[in-house]
């Protein structure tokens, strides 16, 4: 089947395109989930960035990253797919635009680490991966962006963002559980080591 060459070995097949579209849709749908306010931090958290962790952890690096690219393209075209019905170009130009762009990299990184550790993956590892990609890396992109566009010192931007961390940790706890359960019941990721030894088996075609 004809498809896009990613690196030199993996090829984007129709099935990959379908999974990419599905996770873009899942991330979009999670915006409709009512926000939960954490008692400790008092910051409303939305389920949407949970979708970012799931995209990487369920369908892997390349497909997960592209799912978020597709989602952001649809947001940019003016669909109100962010919480509170936000959308359009403006959201990228606002102060938190970096966190949106960061979702692409977060999903890719989570997917990459998940693929690498696939055979040894357990709940603690999956949680750690979600925190590394969905919190550490995401903030490493989003916080300097806020600091730059709002012209505030990095440390101030970081302090301001810290109140969202507890919520993101909770999301990583949930995402890790979902990723582990889906791995057992309907695994999609073809781990790299296995693909090398056995060829790309297990698919019709």
């Amino acid at each position: 089947m004809a498809g896009l060459q990613v690196e030199s070995r993996t090829v984007l097949e129709t099935r990959d395109v379908v999974f990419i579209a599905l996770f873009a849709a899942i991330v979009a749908s999670l915006a409709a989930f009512p926000p939960i306010t954490l008692p400790l931090a008092g910051v409303p958290i939305t389920a949407q960035s949970l979708g970012v962790m799931l995209a990487g952890g369920v369908i892997g690096a390349v497909r997960g990253g592209l799912a978020l690219v597709l989602f952001l393209v649809l947001v940019a075209t003016g669909l109100p797919l962010l919480p509170g019905g936000r959308g359009g170009f403006g959201v990228f130009l606002g102060p938190t635009g970096g966190f949106l762009i960061g979702w692409v990299f977060a999903a890719f990184a989570i997917g990459y680490m998940t693929e690498r550790l696939w055979h040894r993956l357990n709940y603690v590892l999956a949680f750690t991966i979600c925190v590394l990609g969905g919190v550490v890396l995401l903030y490493a992109i989003g916080v300097p962006w806020v600091a730059f566009v709002a012209k505030i010192p990095l440390s101030t931007a970081l302090t301001g963002s810290l109140s969202f961390v507890p919520g993101d940790i909770v999301k990583a706890l949930i995402a890790a559980g979902v990723i582990m359960t889906v791995k057992r019941s309907y695994p999609i990721i073809q781990p790299k080591a296995e693909a090398d030894s056995a060829g790309r088996s297990g698919r019709p075609e």
Binding site: T14, V17, V18, I20, A21, L22, A24, A25, A28, S29, L70, F71, V73, L74
Partner: peptide, 10 residues
């Protein structure tokens, strides 16, 4: 296809 499918999947 990806764009259309996503709008269909939401």
């Amino acid at each position: 296809l990806g764009v259309s499918l996503c709008l269909r999947f939401i």
